[in-house]
């Protein structure tokens, strides 16, 4: 089956001058139609930069290499006009802070209707009816009244639902989610995660879900790709990676979880801190923090390879 999303050897470099920052370095990832993949990583790992590349949201000064195809379309080659059609129609996105993503001076209903008319045409009344239908689907109570709300009149959870409604307004094939539940309270987070999962099934969406939280990834994703310092270091079925992580960084992250500490008085930690992207070590980026490091790790970047036919890991000493 042809993949819905096919990212090959993506690289994104910010800044010129003496110390450019390679935020993403050689990311290759494919998603089947209807598949949900979590991009898991800490700040600076390149997960959000990878996601934004799919909509070409980087500043003009960023140098982007590699190829991205979505539903057969070469994203890098799109003209500005075709890109505007592509955004929202084929691929849409939800963000961590809906308050920043929505316009504060228009009602939510007007903002959704504007997107609907831009992509699908039709009358104002049709667009509003569509917005009302979407509000019902994302389970916003008293939907009709809520359409006339301004963003500041809604709570965080309600606003995130409204943003999901807007993202789905033009029947996209791909939904990109950039930490959409990180700013929400626990009881609301689980509601939004379940909503995303349900709508994903209903619409047959391919979803890339960026998160730093393994628990969140486990709630929504079929597969997970763990990122570190701009590269994917491990990729596989979510259950496999959680049960038996192969990369030492993925293992470290899973072992450091406080919920596993039951009874112990100390947490297992990964020593050190993530590297400065502008000053990466020549070999494996994780080598300075790794317990299994060998000479080879310090000189050569390990390729992402498939051990045992299950998933892939970029490590010379996996297991």
């Amino acid at each position: 089956m042809t993949p819905m999303i096919d990212i090959r050897d993506l690289s994104v470099v910010f800044g010129r001058g003496p110390k450019p920052v390679p935020a993403v370095d050689g990311v290759t990832l494919a998603l089947a139609p209807g598949e949900v993949v979590a991009l898991l990583g800490e700040s600076g790992s390149g997960k959000s930069v990878t996601l934004r590349s799919l909509l070409r949201l980087h500043p003009a000064s960023a140098r982007v290499g590699g190829t991205i195809r979505v539903d057969g379309t070469d994203v890098m080659a799109l003209s500005p006009r075709a890109l505007a059609d592509f955004r929202g129609r084929t691929v849409s996105m939800i963000f961590q802070e809906p308050r920043l993503a929505l316009d504060p001076v228009y009602t939510i209903g007007d903002q959704i209707a504007e997107a609907v008319r831009r992509h699908r045409g039709g009358t104002r009344a049709q667009a509003r009816a569509r917005a009302l239908d979407l509000f019902d689907r994302v389970r916003i109570p008293s939907a009709k009244r809520r359409l006339d709300n301004y963003p500041h009149e809604m709570s965080g959870g309600m606003l995130q639902r409204a943003m999901i409604a807007m993202a789905l307004s033009c029947d996209p094939k791909v939904l990109l989610a950039d930490e959409p539940t990180t700013a929400l309270d626990a009881t609301v987070q689980i509601q939004i995660l379940l909503l995303v999962r349900e709508l994903q099934r209903e619409y047959g969406l391919s979803v890339i879900f960026v998160t730093h939280d393994i628990g969140v990834a486990a709630e929504v994703a079929d597969r997970v790709a763990v990122m570190y310092a701009g590269r994917i270091v491990e990729e596989g079925a979510i259950a496999d990676v959680i049960r038996s992580p192969q990369h030492p960084y993925a293992r470290g992250l899973l072992d450091a979880r406080v919920e596993l500490a039951g009874g112990r008085d100390r947490l297992i930690t990964i020593p050190g801190a993530p590297p400065d992207l502008a000053d990466l070590p020549p070999g494996c980026s994780f080598a300075p923090r790794c317990a299994r490091v060998s000479g080879e790790c310090r000189t050569t970047v390990p390729p992402l390879a498939a051990p045992l036919g299950r998933g892939q890991v970029a490590c010379f000493h996996p297991g």
Binding site: G215, A218, A221, I242, R257
Partner: peptide, 10 residues
């Protein structure tokens, strides 16, 4: 409400 970190417990 806490995520369970186990896809079998969704």
């Amino acid at each position: 409400s806490m995520p369970k970190a186990d896809p079998a417990e969704r």
